[in-house]
């Protein structure tokens, strides 16, 4: 159907749309391209001539910036630490938020309005202001400086947005589907895992992507709750230590930006395919 309607367009329309999209995509990509090119240039070139000169004269191409980042001592540990932090934090966020959004979207509960109101308002709480009280609590629980502390923190900070996002997506799942399952005698867990989650895959995929990015790129929560000592420091903390305190270090920062971007981007590309599933993929016809 999609393909068919695509060909229903007049040719010039297709051309026009393609060109427009291409123009926008290129415009959006230029800043990233500037950084990407700079990551392959020497420091003194970056500071003295614009990145576009590289397109004309690329003799100064160098891998040195990447080499110095990749060969940096402890970068492997930092990468693993980032994974250890991000993986569970994302899983927990998605699971707990979906569980909370489920009754908010489908079940009748007291005070659901107040709960939604709270969830929306809580998104505005600046993380910086929660740091000290949370840290006190974590220390009294003996969790200060441990991975569970950051998992819980990232999950908690992600929940208001995630519950809100998932609930708004869940309510567009046709209620008749759930009703039908109920009549077949399915329990709630079954409905949640077998109907609501699969039908909301696009939303869950986008949530997973965002949560992954935010946790992966986080510096503040890691430094405050985990500390930056080598055995626990994630990639962001490690990369911040690669340049001297007073150097601008653009060349190193550019290369490290792309190295740390590889995984989030791969996650994005991987999850993007779930955008086409969701309701349309369901075999159920109403």
């Amino acid at each position: 159907m999609k393909i068919k309607s695509y060909f229903n367009f007049k040719n010039y329309k297709i051309l026009f749309l393609n060109l427009t999209v291409a123009a926008i995509a290129i415009l959006w990509f230029i800043p990233t391209l500037a950084l990407l090119i700079s990551s392959f240039r020497n420091q003194n070139e970056i500071y003295s001539s614009g990145w576009w000169n590289f397109l004309i004269d690329s003799r100064s191409f160098t891998f040195d910036n990447y080499k110095s980042v990749i060969l940096h001592k402890g970068i492997g540990t930092a990468f693993v630490n980032s994974l250890i932090i991000t993986g569970p934090a994302v899983l927990l966020t998605v699971l707990l938020s979906a569980m909370a959004a489920f009754p908010l979207a489908f079940l009748k509960i007291n005070g659901s309005r107040i709960i939604i109101l709270t969830i929306v308002a809580l998104q505005a709480v600046p993380i910086q202001i929660t740091l000290i009280p949370v840290l006190k609590m974590l220390n009294s629980l003996g969790l200060g400086g441990s991975f569970p502390a950051v998992w819980l923190a990232h999950t908690a900070y992600g929940i208001p947005f995630s519950v809100y996002l998932l609930r708004n997506f869940f309510i567009s799942v046709p209620f008749s589907l759930i009703e039908a399952a109920m009549i077949d005698g399915a329990n709630r867990a079954h409905i949640f895992f077998k109907i609501v989650l699969p039908l909301s895959l696009p939303a869950i995929a986008s949530l997973a992507i965002f949560q992954f990015l935010w946790v992966w790129n986080d510096l503040l929560v890691a430094l405050a709750y985990l500390g930056g000592s080598e055995n626990v420091a994630p990639l962001t903390v490690k990369m911040a230590s690669m340049k001297g305190s007073l150097e601008s270090g653009w060349h190193i920062m550019a290369a490290s930006a792309f190295i740390s971007m590889v995984l989030p981007l791969a996650i994005f590309l991987f999850f993007q395919r779930y955008f086409i599933s969701g309701i349309t993929a369901g075999a159920v016809k109403q």
């Binding site: 800043p31 965002f210 990015l213 790129n217 510096l219 740390s260 971007m261």
Partner: peptide, 8 residues
């Protein structure tokens, strides 16, 4: 892509 970049 910009979302995947760190703020630094």
């Amino acid at each position: 892509m910009p979302m995947a970049l760190s703020f630094v």
